[in-house]
Design a protein around this nucleic acid. Structure first.
Lengths: 228, 228
DNA sequence: GCGATGCTTCGGTTACGATCGAACTATGAA
DNA sequence: TTCATAGTTCGATCGTAACCGAAGCATCGC
């Protein structure tokens, strides 16, 4: 009975509501200070500090000191995937805190998931990439095709650069609001970054939602069509 | 801060050591009674009973009454995958309770993972199926090829039957002792079942390990060769 | 230097949940 | 029927961890 990895430890880390809220906030991808995290956790800074220390000791978070601020982020993408997969699992069982899916329509439409695009627009983009033959799907896996590599070059994404990182190029990530897959991995990140760089969309201050400009919206829908 | 699925709830369910031990025992795939689960959890039956009630209320377990026994199993494969993914995550962070990987060499060699083969033999089988062109791998996804369908027919597995179930045919499952993927899904289950039916291997009473007979061992290694 | 801000550490309180003994229910066997 | 086994429910204990106020560092701006 004592064999194997200790899942109770990380389960307990995630099992506290305040800590869970902090982790959920951090899959927004941006680094947050201890005070901000105390806010999302609904607790005082003292309490948050001890929670954050535990999460860091457990290897779920890393902190970066910058002046008199301490910025916390998820330790790596594996943590984000774990949290997301638990969210997907919980959503599938109806363990929702309020409505099914994100409350605000904006969140449901487009939001950030660690560092890539999720929500309605996220699944639409992946669907379109598959339909156009840029990405092939086998089982739950995703792979970039030669055609896809060319197409991406046209919109300014050099896949060669992405390959050099150890991180997988394409990854499927289950969207818990749409209950379908969207594109993660370094390619997912690069695509979202390019939208932000082009000014098609921007992140909001306090939320995970992504706001598309009217022009960006038009461009996005044209670039990633879905046939009826 | 209140949006989204409640991961704290299931985190807390898994976060208790006694409950985590029970869940880990149940990914062995066989139904266990409350008394047996109390044993693996290292607690009395009264305590186990309350734990099991909570796990059932949380949707992680289902129970089946049979005479004066109550047999508990994981609610479905999604629970098994969640536990396994948490094990993989924990193993990657070095959150081990004792040695890295399973303690007994037998467990490391071949063990059951919910309903399919894991351990050294599990990853070997998948490697061999990919090398022979029976299964194709794209990203993290797995798909059965036409050649594979024919090959499987030869060893007595009718893929058509498997397709009728809603469960995915091929699924990749991260092996936490080998740190590599092995084959899950209904095909993984069917393959293990056939080994057991043929008498090549048998399950052990109290452990997750799978014991191959000398003849079964020979057949298995011949059927799933790996080139150097 | 000074005060203000961000965060951690300390100390003490509180509450929840894990635990078990004992009593109770249900099924099976004699 | 009676006894034994399997399991749940009740009641009470106990420990731990979450929590916050207050004090202590560290860093910034002045």
């Amino acid at each position: 009975m004592k064999e194997g990895p200790d899942i109770a430890q990380i389960g307990a880390l995630i099992g506290d509501p305040a800590r869970a809220n902090m982790l959920a906030a951090l899959i927004g991808g941006r680094a947050l200070t201890a005070t901000e995290l105390a806010g999302v956790g609904g607790i005082t800074v003292q309490t948050a500090s001890t929670h954050l220390a535990k999460l860091e000791a457990g290897g779920l978070l890393t902190q970066r000191k910058q002046g008199r601020h301490r910025y916390f982020t998820l330790a790596d993408e594996a943590v984000a995937r774990l949290i997301e997969s638990m969210m997907g699992f919980a959503a599938g069982r109806g363990h929702l805190r309020h409505q099914p899916g994100p409350k605000e329509p904006a969140l449901r439409k487009a939001r950030i998931c660690y560092d890539h695009l999720a929500g309605d627009y996220g699944v639409r983009m992946l669907d379109s990439l598959i339909a156009s033959g840029s990405i092939e799907a086998v089982g739950e896996g995703l792979g970039l095709t030669e055609k896809g590599e060319g197409d991406l070059k046209c919109i300014g994404i050099d896949v060669g650069d992405l390959r050099s990182s150890r991180r997988p190029l394409c990854r499927s990530c289950l969207d818990w609001s749409e209950r379908r897959a969207h594109l993660a991995g370094s390619l997912g990140k690069a695509l979202l970054s390019s939208f932000l760089d082009k000014g098609w969309a921007r992140r909001t201050a306090e939320s995970r939602s992504i706001l598309f400009s009217p022009e960006g919206d038009r461009q996005f829908l044209m670039l990633f069509p879905v046939d009826p």
